[in-house]
């Protein structure tokens, strides 16, 4: 059963003559429990697709279906709760003058949920934070702890889909792994569906089942994790991305050990 269906999705910014079409006609489906990656260079439209799915970006055409329900430009509260966004920057995504408890309580109040303290305690345990953190302010937390809070805030409405907008790129390498493993565990435990935006192919290969390579607003290739790991991707642009993610290599050599022209 597919959780997300996007058909001929296009999204733009601005109005009239200055309108800029950032995403040009992409179609994809994401199955329940699957993690779908969006990879590409800066400005290729990955985050815009995520914004359109989350309800942040309202200027889109085409059709979006989430959990079997066709989504319009305006969403009901229940539709908004079905998917939640985790932001890239954990320092800017949590209200600086709310305690963590207040931050987590806010969505529960909006949606009129019951057993509020119980839910807060459960979600803090789920993301691996001590319960007394609920009395703390974000400035007393580290980047990784804040990102855990951001994930907790997204999870507290019990969504079916998490939209992850480069969730680890603002964090230290050691913390990145922690957060990625947390996301992996949560996906299994809560049977979540993920869409992960990243430009780090290592992160993508760790978490994603399928990856869409994007270039200037369109998909060039949808590769499986197997293809990424075995380096059997087909499109030339995907190869460039994969080379880039390997970091600095002094020179490329062929199998006889002779240097190749770059």
């Amino acid at each position: 059963m597919s959780m997300i269906k996007a058909h001929h999705l296009a999204a733009s910014y601005g109005h009239g003559d200055t309108a800029l079409k950032v995403v040009k006609d992409v179609s994809f489906e994401v199955q329940k429990g699957e993690t779908f990656g969006l990879v590409g260079e800066s400005g290729c439209g990955k985050s815009t697709i995520l914004g359109a799915l989350a309800g942040r970006n309202k200027q889109w055409t085409g059709s979006i279906e989430i959990d079997g329900e066709t989504i319009g430009q305006k969403r009901t509260r229940a539709q908004l709760a079905k998917q939640q966004l985790v932001f890239q920057d954990p320092f800017g995504s949590i209200h600086p003058r709310h305690t963590i408890g207040r931050t987590l309580l806010e969505p529960l109040e909006i949606h009129g949920k019951d057993r509020r303290q119980e839910r807060i305690e459960k979600v803090l345990t789920d993301v691996g934070l001590p319960l007394n953190f609920r009395y703390r302010y974000p400035h007393q937390l580290s980047g990784g702890q804040r990102q855990r809070v951001a994930i907790a805030r997204a999870l507290i409405l019990e969504p079916k889909i998490l939209l992850l907008d480069e969730p680890t790129s603002a964090l230290d390498v050691s913390i990145q792994a922690e957060i990625l493993n947390l996301l992996k565990d949560l996906r299994q435990r809560e049977q979540l569906t993920y869409i992960l935006v990243s430009h780090d192919l290592a992160v993508v290969a760790h978490l994603c089942d399928r990856v869409a390579m994007m270039q200037s607003g369109g998909f060039v290739e949808i590769a499986t994790r197997q293809q990424l790991l075995e380096n059997t991707v087909e499109h030339a642009y995907t190869r460039i991305l994969m080379d880039g993610s390997r970091g600095y290599v002094s020179e490329r050599r062929n199998n006889k050990g002779e240097a190749l022209p770059v």
Binding site: A54, G55, R56, R77, L80, A81, Q84, L85, F87, D89, G92, S93, I94, H95, P96, R97, H98, E106, P107, I110, H111, A150, R153, L157
Partner: peptide
């Protein structure tokens, strides 16, 4: 356009709630 305001919007907070709960303390 701070992320935490957008997060509140994406969770369904109305204009009044955002002004009173999120903007006032700042």
């Amino acid at each position: 356009n701070a992320d935490f305001v957008i997060a509140a919007e994406l969770q369904g907070a109305g204009t009044g709630r955002i002004l009173l709960r999120h903007i006032v303390p700042l």
